[in-house]
Design a protein around this nucleic acid. Structure first.
Lengths: 220, 220
DNA sequence: CCAAAAGTGTTGACTGTACACCCATGT
DNA sequence: ACATGGGTGTACAGTCAACACTTTTGG
């Protein structure tokens, strides 16, 4: 059987929450095509490299991030998506709490910047479409899994948890109902810690019982 | 930027229902590796070929099927999955009513056979894993979309519809509740036709209002 | 004492589930 | 006449959504 040779890349949609906004990490492209435009971090797979490993490598090399929630999204391969021709990209999405990230600006890293999904700049290739797809996936995963843990620090207040949901789903939720449902689900447990020092009543801190991906039966 | 060259394939999980069983189409491999073993239909992408187009081409060439429900599943690329090394496969799943298929046995087509998912033979590569993944996807899609239309003929009885669900979900459903829910969802409508000639009371024939993929709010 | 977020229950509407009998036809 | 699947309604339980006030702290 004949074997044809292909160019395969990966692109990664990295989400975090900061300033009460859902943000995506973009970098300025160093090379043509789309030189100096914003794009998702990504790159070509090495020969014989596994896609999952390539993602980890690229995350580290381009934006100095590791140990994040990672999941394959979709493989895009239409001819129009890259001016160099039909280039296949296996897209991934990543979730991380914002305090885990220290973006180092240097020559190596191409000014990675978190941008609110509500006000994205012009973006190279079909990366806008990939971001839209990732956002859909994130929204539905919120509703039937415990992925929220990967956006939050180990200890968090109920309010932080609820804000995470509200920001991503882009709608207000009822405080009492939210508590009830979440406690009933049995995903989180209270700790003995409280968050003091704010200028209101201190809030109990909770933690996820398991910080591994888990599916639920029914949800929001 | 350096570009590396890769081998990219596609594999297709084609489901249908016949003899009250959910079945997958397998073919006998004509070449090494795994010569003469059962495997999913698939093949290498041509240079510059779009993955979606490659799937259509391969479906036609290998099993003489066209115009089926098609959806991308997942991209597998671990090193262990093919003895020839790290070969990437973009997997798809397809759904078709059984009467739409006329499997022609010839030299060209490698004895394609539908096998019940409950009694699969030894299967080449990691295709077992791909089938398991496809089955999960099919099950969850049944619950929040109208994909069932792609497994049924244009006109069908309520019982055929219910059996489709029961076979795939692998559990009995309540007849009255099933009707109620389905009618309430507004996905199907009664026709003036009936199915006569069986040895019981003739059944009303229904059809899907839309035979396009649609998502529902809530479901089973 | 004031501002700010923390924390807490009840009710009504809706949705899902369990369940049994008569009907129309072919043989 | 009988065997076979076709067709129909009700009641109970569980879940979801709406809603407002008191508490605890910092300033």
């Amino acid at each position: 059987m004949t074997r044809f040779h292909q160019s395969v890349t990966t692109d990664i949609v990295i989400f975090t929450i900061s300033d009460e906004q859902l943000k995506v990490l973009l970098i300025k492209r160093a090379n043509e095509p789309f030189k100096d435009q914003w794009a998702l971090p990504g790159g070509f797979l090495f020969e014989k490299e596994e896609p999952d490993k390539a993602v980890v490598r690229i995350l580290w090399k381009k934006v100095e991030i590791k140990d994040v929630y990672l999941e394959q999204l979709y493989t895009f391969g239409s001819s129009g998506r890259d001016p160099r021709g039909r280039i296949i990209t296996i897209s991934y999405f990543a979730l991380t709490p914002k305090d885990k990230i220290k973006i180092v600006v240097s020559d190596k890293v191409q000014t990675p910047t978190f941008r609110s999904v509500k006000q994205l700049p012009d973006i190279a290739f079909d990366h806008n479409r990939i971001i839209t797809y990732a956002l859909q996936r994130l929204r539905s995963k919120l509703e039937y899994t415990n992925v929220a843990y990967s956006l939050l620090p180990q200890y968090f207040t109920f309010n932080q948890l609820q804000r995470t949901y509200e920001i991503i789903l882009n709608k207000k939720l009822d405080k009492r109902n939210f508590r009830k449902k979440f406690i009933l689900l049995g995903l989180i447990k209270p700790t003995k810690k409280v968050l003091k020092g704010e200028r209101q009543r201190p809030a109990k801190l909770y933690q996820f019982i398991s910080r591994k991906p888990t599916e639920l039966k029914k949800f929001f």
